[in-house]
């Protein structure tokens, strides 16, 4: 009985202290990690989606808050002069947690310009191809904002990557979430950009 209690007490104390320590380290590094992700993930993704942007989307970024949602927006001027925005959504249910997707949308035509996967922890060579090989995400390019962006398995229009259905699904969930957010927040975004 005494042994039993000591096992429970030791494990409980140990996990509680570990949890507290990790929470402290996490909040201590949060701002710095955010900056690094901006520099090494979001900036290259924006560059890939809008190679000919005539402004500096990173410097002009702003955050809008509406209906309990807070979203970081990168405004972009396309080469032909039309306004576009880029923002990131997280697709739930990847193999290694959430899959981040940067999606660029043309504000004048309501068309998706392009999309790139950012932060993920998918398997190298399988799910990670969503990021390394732009062929999969290129299916989102030039789709209208109300297109059905689910996988073909889920009666949508997007082909899954072979061998990486779970990752593909997470990416499409991020894209669908982006469509919903855009439709909900567009008036607010346009107001902010003026």
């Amino acid at each position: 009985m005494r042994e039993m209690i000591s096992m429970i007490v030791v494990l409980t104390v140990l996990t509680a202290v570990s949890g507290g320590l990790l929470a402290a380290v996490k909040s201590g590094t949060e701002v710095q990690i955010e900056n690094q992700i901006l520099k090494f993930q979001k900036a290259p993704a924006i560059q890939d989606i809008f190679p000919e942007a005539t402004n500096d989307p990173l410097a002009e970024r702003f955050t809008i808050t509406a209906e309990d949602i807070s979203l970081q927006i990168f405004p972009t001027k396309m080469a032909d002069g039309s306004n576009a925005i880029v923002f990131e959504t997280k697709g739930k249910g990847g193999y290694g947690g959430d899959v981040g997707l940067m999606i660029g949308i043309n504000l004048e035509t309501d068309q998706i310009v392009g999309a790139r996967v950012t932060t993920h922890a998918e398997t190298p060579g399988l799910g990670a191809r969503a990021k390394d090989d732009p062929e999969f995400v290129s299916q989102f390019a030039d789709q209208p904002i109300d297109a059905n962006l689910a996988l073909k398995n889920d009666s949508g229009t997007i082909d899954a990557m072979s061998g990486a259905t779970i990752t593909s699904k997470a990416v499409t969930l991020a894209a669908i979430q982006a469509q919903e957010l855009y439709q909900k927040l567009k008036p607010e975004i346009v107001k902010q950009m003026k």
Binding site: I33, Q36, I37
Partner: peptide, 10 residues
Amino acid sequence: ELVMQAYTYE
């Protein structure tokens, strides 16, 4: 992992 993300992201 957290410290590497914060300081040596590449």
